[in-house]
């Protein structure tokens, strides 16, 4: 079918290049673009071509960020974590300059092994053979071991 634009209602305002093959993460909450890159482990060191738009005017959000990554499609795990800090994001998979797939992120019921617990008294922060597990709440995440709820600063808890 082929949507001709790179999946972006404001691309004419954005001096970021269209990508050839890769992913466009659109409708990221303003200010979260760098956290999105952190989640994806993208620091430019592997030579990926990345463009970031910040505080772009948007129909759905007052202001949004947008991230375009050349040569990279996201795994389900990555999308799950992404959903925690960018719940309104849309993922556009681009092949040969066309958007071939476009979907909203869906928040999973739980995430395993991707966040660390901020409670220093939690058993998962001791030296134990245990994988962190967080239940995803409407407005945050909750440690499956100690019950601590994280609402703000979820991106800071991402295991790198």
């Amino acid at each position: 079918m082929g949507m001709s634009e790179n999946g972006d209602d404001a691309s004419h305002q954005l001096r970021v290049s269209k990508i050839h093959n890769g992913t466009v993460i659109d409708h990221v909450r303003a200010g979260q673009a760098l956290n999105v890159l952190a989640i994806l482990g993208i620091d430019g060191g592997d030579g990926e071509s990345v463009s970031v738009g910040m505080n772009v005017p948007s129909d759905r959000l007052a202001r949004k960020d947008i991230v375009k990554v050349e040569g990279r499609e996201l795994s389900q795990d990555e999308v799950d974590v992404l959903s925690l800090i960018a719940p309104d994001a849309t993922i556009n998979i681009v092949r040969e300059y066309d958007v071939v797939e476009k979907h909203r992120v869906e928040r999973p019921d739980a995430v395993s092994g991707v966040l660390s617990c901020p409670n220093s008294g939690c058993i998962t922060t001791a030296d134990e053979p245990v994988t962190s597990r967080f239940e995803v709440l409407k407005d945050g995440v909750r440690c499956g071991y100690c019950g601590t709820i994280v609402r703000e600063g979820i991106a800071d808890q991402i295991d790198t």
Binding site: G121, I123, G144, C146
Partner: peptide, 25 residues
Amino acid sequence: PRQGAATMAGEFVNVPLINAGDGAG
């Protein structure tokens, strides 16, 4: 002393385990 200790311990044993206090938990 750690919160969640009994939850984790329970994942490793196949006999009944009773939590008699896990930190502030």
